[in-house]
Design a protein around this nucleic acid. Structure first.
Lengths: 282, 282
DNA sequence: GGTTGCCATAAGGGATGCTGATGCCCGTGG
DNA sequence: CCACGGGCATCAGCATCCCTTATGGCAACC
């Protein structure tokens, strides 16, 4: 018998809240209901999943958590995919990464009623679960390689654009006069930690290097602000050439990494969403 | 509320059996129980999923089926992953593709108690759901590209070997004297349809071409038999150089495709399975 | 035209899943 | 050191659920 996702959902919420009582509040149950659901899940799997006081996942609980998120997402995606067949939508929602909307892609959005800003994984989840019709996700990648995205079922992914990346430095920086820069020469430098714009862990993964020491943390979505922070000497940053309006911009020459934008969507009937897909991919 | 996988499982079984009554037999229910479960699922999703008399999925049902298999697999994988933490296995099962066990890989199997032959997708599913500890999957791929495998959760995939592919032809074939062959020159030829050894649809996908007309169908797992059928003139076949014992063997030179073997496994504690992993990947 | 098989429906019974009440334990503050 | 409060575990009860049995209706087949 499959693991009960109703119990999985409760489990995930308890871990997120760190408390049975708080999870009960969030899910609309009483605290004994949550206690009994967790006990039922532990009995079903035959192992403790949570330590108590404090409430924290055991190793088995951590292992289950790795599955729970993708599973619950895929279950929502299944419901959304079926619902999509009989929907007659009056809105067209695009989930877009902060660097995904350039002059070119923005010009192709006729018919879109709402643009939501979301990181790549969140944007894919929004499309999979039917809360967005399309996603434009962005990030660093080797040329022509696809972005690393979560699997959320039968979605279509199409590359829309790739763009040169530039390192943004302040005027007067010793490397400001270079014609090109290598990332491993910059591994020991301090970098602007703009997790919503250019996440450093993602960059380390694509570039296959360590380092890139995080400096000032910027929690917004505006690449121009990330560029200004770099230009002001708070650390380096790496941005698509077209989104870095100030500071000294030196092209990244090694490793071969570009800024890539991909369009993600479910199977679409003829209509405004399909028109936007056509406009973005021609 | 997530789609109930208990109902999904019944739905998948009804479609597979083509009958509520047969599905009831298979699942251990009475026929009214199955009828009520399908009705509950259709009510939950708000659309008919099955036509009746004959029982066949609607478009919504087909769409749900695309999710159901991966979902049910991932739920089994979640249970197996948790179980693995407290298991003390006395057996070591390897799921292997028919072309995955060469002299080199076979020599590395100390401690393996059972070898099960399975296609790539089935082998991955066996590991994910805990029915096998390791899988050696094989198939054609571009050099250094990974095989296209289903996502069944947090599994580790490591390339083990790549080998030149050769086209097997009968003696006296007009192309038998060539030093190398291009696949698109052979697209109109008839090919041995050995779906368990070298699936033609998989080959078309990797080579990005149409054609490869299927001839005689061989349903077994023995590449030597596929080679014999080709040598006897029943069609061409493509095999790793080391597994083609007879017929004229001409290397494939374009497109750049190799025969790749990958090892797939879950997170393993120290023990015999981890030893086999080390032996296969060094 | 009758028969048979299969899906849909109704009714009933046992099991489930939640709530309210309460017990127990542990951390915190006086 | 002790009292208090918060939070998880347990119990009992009730409403709902989920299965089975009985049966109806329909369509294909002989």
């Amino acid at each position: 018998m499959p693991v009960d996702p109703h119990l999985l959902r409760t489990f995930v919420t308890v871990v997120a809240e760190g408390s049975f009582s708080a999870a009960a509040d969030r899910l609309g149950y009483t605290q004994p209901a949550v206690s009994q659901q967790i006990a039922a899940l532990e009995a079903d799997l035959g192992v403790p999943l949570l330590g108590r006081r404090p409430v924290r996942p055991t190793r088995a609980g951590e292992r289950l958590l790795e599955h729970a998120g993708p599973l619950l997402l895929r279950l929502r995606a299944a419901r959304a995919d079926v619902a999509r067949l009989s929907a007659e939508p009056r809105t067209l929602t695009l989930a877009a990464g902060p660097l995904a909307l350039t002059a070119g892609t923005a010009a192709a959005l006729a018919g879109v009623t709402t643009v939501r800003v979301a990181g790549a994984a969140a944007a894919v989840a929004l499309v999979a679960s039917g809360e967005a019709d399309l996603a434009l996700v962005d990030g660093p990648a080797a040329p022509s390689d696809p972005l690393s995205l979560p699997d959320a079922g039968p979605l279509t992914t199409v590359g829309v654009r790739e763009e040169e990346l530039v390192v943004v430095l302040p005027e007067g920086h010793p490397l400001a006069g270079r014609a090109g820069l290598r990332l491993d020469d910059l591994a020991d430098a301090v970098w602007v930690d703009a997790a919503e714009v250019m996440p450093l862990d993602r960059l380390r993964a694509v570039a296959r290097l360590d380092g890139l020491r995080p400096g000032i943390r910027y929690e917004g979505h505006d690449p121009a602000v990330a560029a200004r922070l770099a230009a002001a000497g708070h650390g380096l940053t790496l941005l698509p050439a077209s989104t870095a309006p100030c500071g000294v911009r030196v092209p990244l020459v090694a490793p071969r990494i570009v800024h890539r934008v991909e369009l993600v969507h479910a199977a679409l009937p003829p209509g405004p969403a399909a028109e936007v897909v056509r406009a973005l991919t021609s």
